[in-house]
Amino acid sequence: MFASDTYHLFMKYMRITWRMPMWTLFGLAQPLIWLIIFSDLFSEMAKLQGWPTTSYANFFLPGVMVMTVLFGSAWAGVSLLREVNFGTVDKMMVTPIHRGAVLFSRVLHSAATVIIQCVVLLIMAFIMDLDLNLSVLPLAAGLVAVLTLGIGFASLSNGIAIVLRREEPLVVVGNFMTLPLMFFSSAMMPVKYMPDWIQWCAVVNPINYAVEASRTMLVGKQDWVAFGQGYAIVFGFAVVAFMWANFTFMKSRQ
């Protein structure tokens, strides 16, 4: 069964992640460092005319959550290649599981680790006394948007890994993608301050919609319509990315 197969494989990946103390240490610390450094570095920006929030840290929090997705999921494909080479994938594929669960459990795991990092970020935001909506529903909606983006982005990384077949070029492609995708979104700066051509890039960037969707939930006045529109695009991106990755993965094993 797809659900239980996914669950068992997902638990395996979570277990392995928790056993890597390096991940726990740096994985949890990294978004915090970003939040602290960037909030301080760009604190003057909030004085710009028409800035949407009272402080830069307030504006940036949804952005740093999405940044965590990008940097956390971009290398998700590396471990897929390792599992292919170690024969772990073959071992799963000869059992009578639903084969879609092999890849889905992986991307779910990547997205879930990002959610753990985001929860740590929110706790930090609470400590820093940022002006956020910390009621349950908006919080959950914001995290779901991040989770969905994580699934989509991890799928993309896994699919590209299958196409490239090697870790090194995957790292190059990951590096090539992440920073432009982040700067072409409103993660660090509202779209209205951007030059025209970057605004156009932002329109076709799914990252931008994830940032906007979670920001409207977490910061300032909630706009459920804007959230619904943004989330629909992020969801569509995740579905297409996963379908493509799974298709590529199955085809590579023919």
Binding site: S4, L9, R15, F86, G87, K91, M92, T95
Partner: peptide, 24 residues
Amino acid sequence: AQNTGIDFFMTGRENLTLIAHLYH
């Protein structure tokens, strides 16, 4: 397979239990 497909960061029992789950 030629390559041992077991997971090195799990115990022997965990590896077996996982595969047993996959065999439902």
